Amino acid sequence: MTSNDPPFTPVPERVAVVTGGSRGIGRTVALELARNGLAVVVNYTRDAASAEETVETITAAGGRAIPVPADVADEHAVAALFDRAEQEFGGVDVVVNSAGRLALSSIADLDLAVLDDVHRTNIRGTFVVARQAARRLRAGGSFLGVSTSVVGAQFPGYGAYAASKAAVESITLILARELRGRDITVNTIAPGPTATDMFLDGKTPEEIDRLAKTPPLERLGTPEDIARVAAFLTGPAGHWVNGQILRVNGGMV
């Protein structure tokens, strides 16, 4: 730098709320955002120990993070979650709604109580979190929903889950348009088969191998694959992408 060069302008700290941030994709997204310099509110529902571990990993590396419990379908708890983010860090710039519930069943055998639970978390939870994000995100901010590539792939047994995530996709462009003039982006990522505990649970090695060979890249995705895309879409480099569904799946449908 010479004496004629303008001084660097300090970049204000950005703040992220990551729901479902204690495990799986949500945890890895929280770590990636922290690595990119964001303060992170790690939301969880029941697994306090995993949320604390995520926060400790971030703070040990010099980042800032706090764990905050909230059921994403409970509007009062989610409002309190955003209150805590504002009280602790001064505002909210990024919201990644990673909290979700998976249930596998044929439609003929589907337990309707399970259907209600899945839709409560995946549909109502998305609306509750998106509502707070729409009210509180600062200019330059981003909301990122999480869907699934099964919405396009249409695998048997995923009817309840795919239907709930199709709802997430359907509101993406609507919310982006409703936030016109606020300099806030709204996008949704739709991961393919990804090696998380939720995905691997209950599947045989043969089933996992078959699903791993579905994409042309012939492997399962990793949480890191998904987190890097989430960081791009919610960061300055991805701010011209808006109202889009991005299938992060190695080349599946």
Rank of each mutant, 00 (worst) to 15 (best):
97 N>C: 03
239 H>E: 08
14 R>A: 00
21 G>C: 10
202 G>L: 06
216 P>M: 10
157 G>P: 14
75 E>F: 05
93 D>S: 00
99 A>F: 01
251 G>S: 12
40 V>C: 13
79 A>S: 15
110 L>S: 02
122 N>V: 00
29 V>R: 12
161 Y>C: 11
2 T>F: 08
164 S>I: 10
165 K>Y: 11
137 L>V: 07
130 A>Y: 02
186 V>N: 10
113 A>Y: 05
78 V>K: 01
62 G>L: 11
51 A>V: 14
23 R>Q: 13
141 G>R: 03
197 D>C: 00
219 R>S: 04
17 V>A: 06
44 Y>K: 12
231 A>F: 05
127 F>K: 01
179 L>R: 05
10 P>D: 10
165 K>D: 09
204 T>D: 04
133 A>G: 13
115 L>N: 01
103 A>L: 04
203 K>L: 07
33 L>V: 09
150 V>M: 13
92 V>N: 03
89 F>A: 01
76 H>K: 07
64 R>N: 12
177 R>T: 09
118 V>M: 06
114 V>E: 05
83 D>R: 12
109 D>F: 02
229 V>G: 04
188 T>L: 07
217 L>N: 00
61 A>V: 13
128 V>N: 04
145 G>N: 06
159 G>A: 14
91 G>V: 00
193 P>T: 04
224 E>P: 08
97 N>H: 10
38 L>H: 14
170 S>G: 15
15 V>R: 05
234 T>G: 08
31 L>F: 12
36 N>S: 10
16 A>V: 01
130 A>M: 10
56 E>S: 15
42 V>I: 15
85 A>I: 01
10 P>W: 09
229 V>W: 03
247 R>G: 09
29 V>S: 12
161 Y>N: 11
124 R>L: 11
131 R>D: 03
158 Y>H: 15
231 A>L: 12
213 K>D: 12
111 D>P: 01
66 I>W: 15
198 M>F: 05
237 A>H: 13
64 R>A: 12
241 V>N: 05
217 L>K: 00
152 G>Q: 14
72 V>T: 12
20 G>P: 02
15 V>N: 05
30 A>F: 02
192 G>Y: 06
4 N>V: 07
163 A>W: 14
149 S>W: 01
199 F>W: 12
134 A>D: 00
51 A>P: 10
230 A>C: 15
31 L>M: 13
31 L>N: 09
40 V>A: 14
157 G>D: 08
118 V>R: 02
174 I>M: 11
224 E>I: 00
124 R>K: 08
203 K>R: 15
208 I>W: 13
65 A>W: 08
176 A>E: 05
152 G>C: 13
115 L>D: 06
116 D>T: 02
131 R>W: 11
15 V>M: 10
216 P>H: 02
35 R>W: 11
64 R>G: 05
80 A>C: 09
